[in-house]
Every structure is written in structure tokens, then in C-alpha cells.
């Protein structure tokens, strides 16, 4: 529709040019005096009738008055609430500090201003890496992190609202673009999607396919760097020992795991109790793409190359970190 409408505008402009001499051009801008008069008339009438004036504001009016916005919560357009986030950080802090004993390397590579797309490996049946990354950056750098995720979260009652209030956003390209380009925020995404956390323990630290490289395209369009982050420890915090494809299909879930935690603590508590694996995070050098932002499309092969290169960097960093790791629990 929009396309046809746009075409229509062109055609119309053409038609106007040809028809103007015949006295067809009604398209003159509204006379300012007439408008002022109309406004006055309307005001008198409005005063009499007790209605507000209903006259179009002239186009030249550039002074946009700040409107009364009687908000009662601090929930932003994405659903995130800083107050809720603060509460979540308070609750999560002991887990972050004492349970996972999260340790960062290269945190200074994350910019204090401007948009950037954070990209990390994703692991654990209920991934523990996302809250650790968001908590760490928010408390160290003092700037919000929005986490892009599957819409599955949004569909769950209560969980969906909580997820949204603490910074979860449905992974839609337009959402990502606005956050990165227009609002210059930090956005976290896991290109492996559910394939990362859904893999068997025997596959740990072997990165899955990075989707179809959508994250690279978004970063290119938004003109922001991709900052890769390698995370070690999340795999062992909730390892999957057995998977049921049939149950997953039945429940409409991407995967249905039985975890070591469940074997130890029971099916319900095991879904909440992480093993105290030491989590280490390494921020890699930001990847800048040498392309103009806001293009209609980008070379697909270039996108796939860049995506693969970033995947390899994270994979190498993981192997490097694992070489240094003496113990799963103490790092």
C-alpha cells in the first residue's frame, strides 16, 4: 500500500504540473490570516459552547510545547522499568557475586556512550549467561542493557511481563534498529538462539550456527559495532543430560531437557537451582563494519562472512579460556 501511495504521490505531482494552468491547483497552503481568523472565531464559539478550539495548527508552527504527560510508572516503550531492574539487580547481586563469582576481562571495551550490539555464546538449559551479562554491565557501567529474545517469553503469563520489565525485548529487526540507531542503547543478542542452550552436555562449548547472520545485518543498518563476548561456566551451571524431542513437540517448546540439576534436586527445584560453576566473561575487540548505515539491503555473502568470523573469534576465545581453566567450580 505504502509503495502504491508513494507512486501515487509522484503521479499526482505530475498531474498537478500539467493541470495547474487550468486552474486546478487548489493545493495552495492555507492562508495564515484566514487561519488566525478561523482560530479566533473558533475560540469565541468554543467559549460559548464550552468546547476546545478545533482548528488545525498552521504548518509554520515549529514551537512544539511540551505536553503534560501524567505517567505513573517508569515503564518505557520497550516495557523495561529501571525501578524493577534495580530491584532485580539487588536480588541477583548475591547470586552474581557469591554463587557464580562472575569475573570480567576487557569490560572497558564496552563503550560508555553510543549504541553497540553485544553478541555472546548461550548455554545452560535455563541459560544463566543472559542475566550475568546484563547484571554485570549495568552495575559496572551504569547503563541499561536490552536483551533480545524469542517471543516465546512474551507468550508466558507473568514470566513474560517480568522478562519485559527487566529489559527483555522481542527480537524483531525493527525493535533492534530503533534501540541501536535511534536510542543508542546497548543491546544483547545470542545468535545461536535456542540451539545453544538446547544442546546436550557432551556438546558443551561447541558453538552452534549463528542463525542466518541477522545480527550482523542489524548492526550494519544501525551503524553500530558488534562486541563479541565469550562466556565460560554457564554450560556447567545447568547441563542437559537427556533431551526429549517428543515432549518438546507436544508442548510447543524449542527443546525439552532433563538436567543434572533436576536429577539432583528434583524436577521443579532443579529448574531453578544452578550449580555453582565459576562464570568468566571475556569481552573481545569490537567489530566495526565498513559500510554505510540505513541501506536498503546489504550483501548476503558479506553478512555471512562477518557472522562466521565473529563466531570463530568467540569459539577461539572459548577454547583459550578453557585451556586456562583448572576447575569448573573455581576457575
Amino acid at each position: 500500500m505504502a509503495e502504491t501511495m508513494e507512486r501515487l504521490q509522484d503521479v499526482r505531482a505530475l498531474a498537478e504540473d500539467t493541470l495547474a494552468p487550468v486552474g486546478f491547483a487548489d493545493a495552495e497552503p492555507v492562508d495564515a490570516d484566514a487561519l488566525a481568523l478561523a482560530a479566533e472565531l473558533a475560540l469565541d464559539e468554543a467559549a460559548a459552547a464550552g468546547h476546545a478550539a478545533l482548528v488545525p495548527v498552521p504548518k509554520s508552527d515549529t514551537t512544539a510545547p511540551t505536553l503534560d504527560d501524567p505517567r505513573q510508572s517508569d515503564v518505557d516503550e520497550w516495557g523495561r522499568s529501571e525501578r524493577m531492574r534495580e530491584l532485580a539487580r539487588k536480588i541477583y547481586e548475591p547470586l552474581y557475586k557469591n554463587w557464580f563469582r562472575a569475573e570480567w576481562e576487557g569490560l572497558e571495551k564496552i563503550p560508555e556512550h553510543g549504541g553497540a550490539l553485544l553478541v555472546a555464546n548461550h548455554a545452560g538449559a535455563v541459560p544463566s549467561d543472559a542475566p550475568v551479562i546484563m547484571h554485570g554491565i549495568e552495575s559496572e557501567l551504569g547503563r541499561p542493557v536490552y536483551g533480545l529474545a524469542d517471543q516465546l517469553f512474551k507468550s508466558l503469563p507473568v514470566v513474560g511481563v517480568m522478562w519485559s520489565r527487566v529489559g527483555g525485548v522481542v527480537a524483531h529487526p525493527d525493535n533492534a534498529y530503533r534501540l541501536l540507531r535511534e536510542q543508542e542503547q546497548l543491546v544483547l543478542v545470542f545468535p545461536e538462539g535456542s540451539k545453544g542452550p538446547g544442546k546436550h552436555y557432551s556438546q558443551r562449548y561447541r558453538l552452534r550456527r549463528f542463525g542466518r547472520g541477522g545480527f550482523v545485518e542489524i548492526a550494519m543498518r544501525a551503524g553500530v559495532p558488534v562486541i563479541p563476548i565469550a562466556v565460560v561456566g554457564a554450560e556447567e551451571s545447568m547441563p542437559i543430560v537427556w533431551k526429549s524431542t517428543a515432549a518438546a513437540k507436544l508442548m510447543g517448546l524449542p527443546y525439552f531437557p532433563v538436567t543434572a540439576n533436576q536429577l539432583m534436586f528434583g524436577p521443579l527445584l532443579g529448574g531453578l537451582m544452578y550449580f555453582p560453576a565459576k562464570i568468566k566473561l571475556r569481552v573481545l575487540d569490537p567489530v566495526h563494519f565498513d559500510v554505510a548505515p540505513d541501506q536498503h539491503r546489504y550483501s548476503k555473502s558479506r553478512i555471512m562472512d562477518e557472522s562466521e568470523r565473529i563466531r570463530e573469534k568467540i569459539q577461539e576465545a572459548l577454547y583459550d579460556m578453557l585451556r586456562d581453566r583448572r576447575s569448573v567450580w573455581f576457575g
Partner: peptide, 18 residues
Amino acid sequence: DDVVRSILFVLANQLPGI
């Protein structure tokens, strides 16, 4: 009020499209 004002606005300024 903004609904009515917006209709009057597009009538006065002739803005084809959505």
C-alpha cells in the same frame, strides 16, 4: 480532540498517503 484536529490538518494541508 487530536483525532478531529488531525483530520482538519490533513484537509488543510493535502497530505496523500497513510
